[in-house]
Computed example of a mutant assay.
Amino acid sequence: MSRAVEESNRRMLRARDAMDRAYTEPLDIPALARIAHVSPAHFIRTFRATFGETPHRYLQRRRVERAMFLLRETDKSVTEVCMTVGFSSLGTFSRTFHAILGESPTAYRKRAVPSVVPNCFGMAYMRPASFPEGGP
């Protein structure tokens, strides 16, 4: 791996880490691009080439992962979970959740069983896949 590619990957990891820390906040591509020291358009292209999905899809998947945990482990309503993980619309949350997992948040909650294994193992096992091509 060349030094330039390695440096680019580090920059993308810094931006992805920032997204992981602030996943409940609105996605701000220009701010993330500044963290990676590239233009917004180059950031989107490079992020996708590095991680296999756009920054927007990555953020949605992270939010759904957190929502899965909250639906399984808390008594919060679906609307409360939606707002807690950073979605501003219940409709968008439900549509995105269904696109990633193939079922509604309510159906997931009914089927899900609270974790009895350490959270890190459960998160790795339960991690949803990225959207298929042509998805939201």
Rank of each mutant, 00 (worst) to 15 (best):
E6S: 09
A99I: 01
V85T: 08
D17N: 14
R109V: 06
R62W: 00
T46N: 10
D28Y: 01
P26Q: 13
P118T: 09
M126R: 08
S8V: 11
P26N: 12
R45F: 05
V81K: 09
V78A: 14
N119S: 14
V117M: 14
K76V: 03
G135E: 00
D28H: 09
T92I: 11
A112R: 09
T74V: 11
R3T: 03
E7Q: 14
F121E: 12
Q60A: 04
H98T: 15
R48E: 14
G86T: 07
S88C: 13
A36Y: 05
D20T: 08
Y125M: 03
R111C: 02
A67T: 02
R3G: 00
A31Y: 05
A41H: 12
E25T: 14
H42W: 11
F51V: 01
E73W: 05
A22W: 10
A36F: 07
T106W: 02
Y108M: 06
P105G: 09
A22P: 02
T54C: 00
P114Q: 08
D28P: 04
R61T: 03
P105Y: 01
I44A: 08
R11L: 15
P55F: 06
G134D: 05
A18E: 09
S130H: 04
P26T: 11
S115I: 14
P128G: 01
V78W: 02
V81A: 10
E25P: 02
Y58M: 02
L27D: 12
S94Q: 07
E103T: 11
A124M: 03
V38D: 10
R11M: 15
C82E: 06
V85E: 05
N119A: 13
E6P: 01
E73R: 13
F131S: 00
M126L: 10
L70I: 01
P105Q: 10
V117F: 12
L101A: 03
D28M: 07
M123F: 06
P128I: 02
A49C: 07
E7T: 13
T84I: 09
R63D: 05
G91Q: 08
Y23P: 12
E25L: 15
T106I: 11
R72S: 13
T92N: 14
E6N: 08
E103F: 03
P26A: 12
G122R: 13
S89L: 07
L13R: 10
F97C: 07
S88V: 13
L32Q: 09
A107G: 12
V5C: 03
F87M: 07
R66N: 08
A99V: 01
S104L: 02
P132Q: 11
G52S: 04
H56N: 04
